[in-house]
């Protein structure tokens, strides 16, 4: 009985594999990228953003091998699409100043609130969770960077 069930489950997963949505596109050349266009951003902030945020919030996603395997692929596709929709650093210079200010304020909020990076992401990607120091400097940077736009 159990054997039959597991075979059925396996077949279902194989079928699911063919119906899975395709992974969001990756592009490493993004003329409107935040980091590329703002060389004044401190090195440690650049690194934090690239290591802990850019996988979902930019077009430069680095997919792990298992991300195209159903049912994981469904989660990955959903989360990355949602993340890029909320904030895509690759399109930064395309945004209005007002939207940039709101995005920077969102960054502070989600970092202070420990909403981001998502727990499931940091559990699967070693070295992506933020230390208290990193959180503090990211929040300070976001506030300064925002203020600087309205000098």
């Amino acid at each position: 009985m159990i054997k039959n069930l597991s075979i059925l489950l396996f077949i279902c997963l194989i079928i699911l594999q063919f119906f899975g949505p395709s992974l969001p596109e990756v592009s490493n050349i993004n003329p409107n990228d935040l980091i590329d266009n703002n060389p004044e951003i401190p090195e440690d902030i650049k690194t934090t953003l690239q290591v802990s945020c850019y996988d979902c919030h930019s077009n430069e996603t680095k997919y792990p091998w298992y991300s195209s395997i159903a049912p994981v692929s469904f989660l990955v596709v959903r989360d990355i699409n949602h993340a890029r929709d909320e904030l895509n650093f690759s399109n930064w210079e395309d945004m209005s100043k007002l939207d940039k200010a709101s995005a920077l304020d969102d960054i502070s909020d989600v970092i202070i609130d420990n909403e981001m990076p998502m727990a499931i992401y940091t559990a699967m990607h070693r070295g992506t969770s933020l230390s208290n120091n990193q959180k503090e400097s990211l929040v300070l940077w976001a506030e300064e960077f925002s203020d600087h736009m309205f000098d």
């Binding site: 007002l98 200010a101 709101s102 969102d106 909020d109 506030e143 925002s146």
Partner: peptide
């Protein structure tokens, strides 16, 4: 706490400009 953190009208007037602009734009949105 969450509502207060996301937007606190008592603090809006004394916030730094960048932060305030971000909050105001979000109110609109």
């Amino acid at each position: 706490i969450k509502s207060k953190m996301k937007l606190n009208f008592d603090k809006l007037s004394t916030m730094k400009i960048g932060k305030r602009v971000g909050k105001l734009n979000k109110i609109h949105d």
